[in-house]
Amino acid sequence: MQRYFISRLGQSALLLIGVIILVFFMVRVTGDPARLMMPREASAEDLEAFREVMGFNRPLYVQFLDFFSGAIVGDFGDSLHFKTPALQLVLERLPATVHLAGIALIFALIIAIPIGLIGGFNPGSVVDTLGRGLALAGQSIPNFWLALIFILFFAVRLRWFPSFGRDEWHSVVLPATVLGLPVMGQIVRLTRSAVLEIRGEDFIRTAYSKGLEPRTIYIKHVFRNVAIPLISVIGVQFGYMLGGSIYIETIFSWPGMGQLIEQSIGWRDFPLIQAIAVFTSVVVLGLNLITDLTYAFIDPRIRYGSS
């Protein structure tokens, strides 16, 4: 268990270093970061002055070591737009994003897991048929389109929910629903197919041959095995929602990291973009680590490191 954890931690650290290197070179692929960051009409003197301030005229390896040592301690320099430390700005946006992603995930799981379980145990039943239709719709309807329809219908026409912002308690409902729907679709399908697969396993037949009650078999033998594939997908999906609800935060003016990404790109605020990129990676890597640990907690084969 400890070895497993340490090796996962090591892998995450390596990945993070990789991300930092990528982020560093990302702004330098065109050769001149100053041109990338400054407005197009900037004069040659302005550009030179900017290079001087940002240290872009130093040798590349010096710049890299500088960036890298800063990134490790969370220092990405000041935002060009706000003139305050970039990471600080990102952290201010974190609660709103976690709020949105958390509600979206809870919404998705509360609906998807029961539907998936019922569908897996009674394939072809009414719940199953409706659930699969919903899953297909959730996965195939484009997010941004659905967001607009929801705003039009639930916010403008019915006036049930606000159409933007995060000022009221129920502001989160519309964006969370739109964000959660595709995840819900995926989890319905995954739960359903996992239940179907596990139900057909030989060890379930063994459980029946022991005379166990169906309820006991579902809880002790089926659910715990179904949880294994679910956990990894939930982890990945949550990471994805935390890092990337750019459309949805923008459409609903949700003051989270996604909106900040959209804005900072518009402002060509590269220190801020870099801070967001590295920070998001840290969040996703952390989440993967938690996922792996949960996984190991449920599955002894991983805990004890069998092949």
Partner: peptide, 23 residues
Amino acid sequence: RNVRGGQIGFVFQDPISTLNPIM
């Protein structure tokens, strides 16, 4: 169910798959 496992026991072919892997 009272008979199965109580008065009649089963042994199946493939011991690799007949036991729950995570219990």
